[in-house]
Each structure stands twice: as C-alpha cells, then as structure tokens.
Amino acid sequence: MQIGILYSRIRKDEKLLLGELRDRGHEVEKIDVRKERFGLDSTTANVDDLDIVVDRCLSTSRSLYATQFLDSYGVPIVNTPETGDICADKAKNSLALARADVPTPATEVTFTKEAAMESIEEFGYPCVLKPVVGSWGRLMAKIDSRNAAEAILEHKETLGHYEHKVFYIQEFVDKPGRDIRALAVDGEPIAAMTRSSDHWLTNAAKGGETKPFDLDDRALELVERASEAVGDGLLGVDLMEVGGEGSGEYTVHEVNHTVEFKALDATTDVDVPAKVVDWLEAKAAAAADGEEVTA
C-alpha cells in the first residue's frame, strides 16, 4: 500500500510507525506540512495515489487545516478533521463526552475574568484552569486559593492571546496519584497504562511513571463510548479513577487525536506500532473498497 504521513516533526512515535510500515513493505510518503501548499482544488503534496494518510502533525493548527484540505480532495485520512476538531479543543471535547453521557469532570467555560472568578468560587478550592488548546500538561493551573485565582486570571487576560480569554474551569478530581491512558482504534483498546506522580499532573510528558494497566469491563465500555463520542479513530483516551485506586469507577477527562504511543510501547508487552499499522491497513483497504473513512 501507499501510505502518507502528515508531519512537522518526526518524534519517536512517528519513527516507530515508519519502521513498522516499511518493514511490511508499504511505500511511505512523508509529507512535511511546513513545505507544502494547500489550494482549494489541489496541493503540492504528493497525495494522488495514496491509499490513506495518517495525520501525525505535532502542531494542532497545522493538523486541523491540513486534514481539512486533504479531506476536501477526497484523500482518505485518519483521524478525520471532524475528530481532530473535537479533540483539539478541550471545551468541544468535554461537550462531546457529556453529549454521549460519558462521565467527565464538571466543567464550565467563561469569557471574562469576572465570570471565571464566579465559576471558580462556586467550584471551590482546589479547582483546575486549563487552556482550551494545549497538551502535555502545559499552562494548566491547580487553583488553591482566591488569591491564586485572581493572579492567574489577570495574567491570562493580560498576557495571553484570545484563546486564553476562554476560561476553561474544571472540578479538581482527587485521583489516586495516577491516571490511565488507553490507546484505542475505533474504540477497541490496543493497550493501556497508568501514569503516576506525586505531582497533581501525571502526564508521561511531565515525567509521570508508567505501568501497564488492565482495563476492566467498565473502563472498556467507557473507552469505546468516548471514542465514538468524538467520531472514532486512533485515539488516546484519558481516564481517572474516582473513589480511589481499583474502585472500578472512572471519569474520562479527555480524548487525544494525534496520540503519542512511545511510552505505551515501552511500558507494555504489546507491539503498539504493529497494532496501529494493522488498523491502518484495514482502514486503507476499506477506503479502497469505497467505504467512507469515518475515523
């Protein structure tokens, strides 16, 4: 097959993927979005003969635009721009999960610091303030007091660009020092791990310690439903245990659409890139058969 990879930076994750694709004899077209032009009818990128393109853009804005352009040319692409649009924005992500009745932390969005302050006071302390676009735990604030809230809101209003004037405020979930990352394809988990830290942010990118995790029936159901809520695809579903470790009750705080999997590959016995490529091959075959790529 001829498989395209949209990228702007080759991380370890992309390297694992490229290695697996080439080992299986696929022709890989690397598309560096920084070098291409995307017109209304065509692009300088060599996409005409590709069976499928997988979006691995590190930059969210580039990912969202490039996937929309390729989709408009009729190039099968995963994840779809629709899924990317929901996952890239925490407010849209929360709305999609709530619409699908997937348990997710209580969240409010406000547009002024005065309204944000009201929201924060109503949530009580601690609560959490997040940028609507961003990753790896960057610019997230656990707010412990009114004084801290006032300072953070003033900084965001004064120093941030317009997206920082969308205040995304969330209840603080008292998780048991860990959260869970499940990698799933169209709702079917490939592997899962916990990410533990003494810090309230447990992201692997923040240095959280990772261990394999067996999803129980409830977690499996939530991963499937969370995936479906955002339009399915190759996704990282993040869950927190509520009521303590091993309680079997979860809340889903977000779904990631250009998911990193190197930590999961290193942590578990699962050959993650092989599973991802199995799925890509199936998606490409389905697209060749005329099925719409829905993920």
Binding site: R9, I10, L58, S59, T60, S61, P131, V133, G134, S135, W136, R138, L139, G236, N256, H257, T258, V259, E260
Partner: peptide
C-alpha cells in the same frame, strides 16, 4: 537539532516548542 537532509547530512537548530504542539 532537526535533520534537514540526509544527502548531504544537514542539521539545524530545531524550532522552539509552540503553544499548540502536542497530542
């Protein structure tokens, strides 16, 4: 450092991390 080309091998300082980078 970012690998710009392989033949010949050219490296450049990689772009700074931007706010919308991530998963």
């Amino acid at each position: 450092l970012e690998v710009i080309s392989l033949d010949p091998v050219v490296l450049e300082e990689a772009p700074e991390l931007e706010e919308d980078w991530g998963e």
